[in-house]
Nucleic acid binder design. Structure first.
Lengths: 232, 232
DNA sequence: TGTCAAGAAAAAATCGATATTTGGACTGTG
DNA sequence: CACAGTCCAAATATCGATTTTTTCTTGACA
């Protein structure tokens, strides 16, 4: 799924940067992507921006509507629930496979990435999410699933995870996920995984995933009853 | 995941037609896509072809290598095995969910699409695969998973299935999948599904998926021992 | 005869410009 | 004052041409 081989073509650079903006929450969900602005900003032609954005649409981070341009994927409660259920099913599946088939090196990398994660503070002094934390968090979860040895499954899980990061970002900014010890959740997942406790680890992962969704849904339902309403 | 709303834009037309060529097996796996030829053939500009092909690359039907253009996805034994394992895991998962949550209307549509499939001959008089069969086959398998009510999961499963169709096409042409009663397999899956026999149905589906792979792998290994070798 | 390199041909990436479409402002009417 | 139709500006989709990069050809040299 990832395509970052040797020579960074213009399209790829632009793709990466827009992708970063999306996941970094610089662009509000549902807002239209102004291709012209991007073209100016990155000093490239429209065609380049277009192709980059088309790829992002393929990943689901961006929605394309013919004749009407592109927009940051709209976040709705029903889509969030759909995404969450999909992630729970697929990520627990992949984790179970990893626990069954992962080798010692994988076990080691789980411990290593968890260690890094555990020692990276989540918030900056300004109360924003630390980019380093995002990185470490992503690496940890990716490693968890990387032991299954089925690269397509891994790729799919990663893609879903990226989509969820859009929600995650806005949830942390908006809903402020209170009273939750995320670090403890991670520790539990890591320990059970390394202990090869398939049932325990998958359940811990399921709860970890569902908890964020629950917080966001609670927040959103406080605002409005409909499922189709945008979250932000 | 599918984007076929209202107004067929040029890109979308070209996308559809190239996609059809790929799944219909008109283009051999691994062969380079000559964008210029497409542009001429469909009487559109290069940009249009480029964007269409970019999307196909996002689905995995086409491989993109920077500065080197696009090629029909290369079929290798190891990728086939990876794909098969992924499909088995995800499709059985989706089927299990469907059996658990599917309603009566879904049950009916399973019966209906199976009925259609059962009465559509697989081969034409010329010994080729009948396009109508392909259609019916696709509809049946899609319906099986459509009861789960999780649209993303469905979309993922459909995407994997499309990738597999590439292999399937060439397998039927090359390896001739002997001594196999595919119709009976379909009937069994349909019956167990409607009977809400989760374990039985998922196992039948697993075997159905794995059987095609096994035939192709046997065929390919007769030719060459390496996993990375192209199948065709 | 095999290897390597310069140069030509082909293909890919990118650009700048044009044709269409969309969304909204404007205006005249009931 | 609400509403419908028209017109205009912004944005999208598409095109044709230019710039790079890769690939192929060919010929000199060891």
């Amino acid at each position: 799924m990832a395509t970052t081989p040797a020579k960074p073509t213009r399209v790829h650079e632009v793709y990466d940067r827009i992708r970063g903006s999306l996941l970094g929450g610089e662009l509000p969900p549902g807002s239209k992507l102004k291709l012209n602005d991007f073209a100016g900003q990155y000093a490239v032609s429209l065609s380049v921006v277009r192709e980059a954005v088309t790829r992002l649409a393929g990943e689901g981070l961006v929605e394309a509507s013919p004749q009407r341009g592109f927009a940051v994927a709209q976040l709705t409660i029903s889509d969030l629930q759909d995404l969450t259920r999909t992630r729970v099913l697929i990520e627990t599946l992949a984790l179970a496979e990893s626990i069954k088939h992962g080798d010692l090196a994988w076990e080691g990398s789980v411990i290593a990435t968890h260690h890094t994660l555990a020692h990276t503070p989540m918030m900056t002094a300004q109360g924003h999410v630390d980019p380093a934390f995002t990185l470490a968090h992503r690496a940890f979860h990716h490693t968890l699933l990387a032991g299954c040895g089925v690269s397509r499954l891994e790729g799919i899980a990663t893609g879903l995870r990226d989509c969820a990061e859009l929600y995650q970002h806005w949830s942390q900014e908006l809903a402020g996920d209170t009273g939750r010890d995320v670090a403890a959740e991670h520790r539990l997942i890591a320990e059970l995984t390394v202990a090869r406790d398939e049932a325990g680890a998958t359940q811990a992962l399921r709860e970890h995933i569902e908890r964020t969704t629950a917080a966001l849904v609670r927040y959103a339902e406080g605002l409005d009853g409909t499922d189709e309403r945008a979250l932000a």
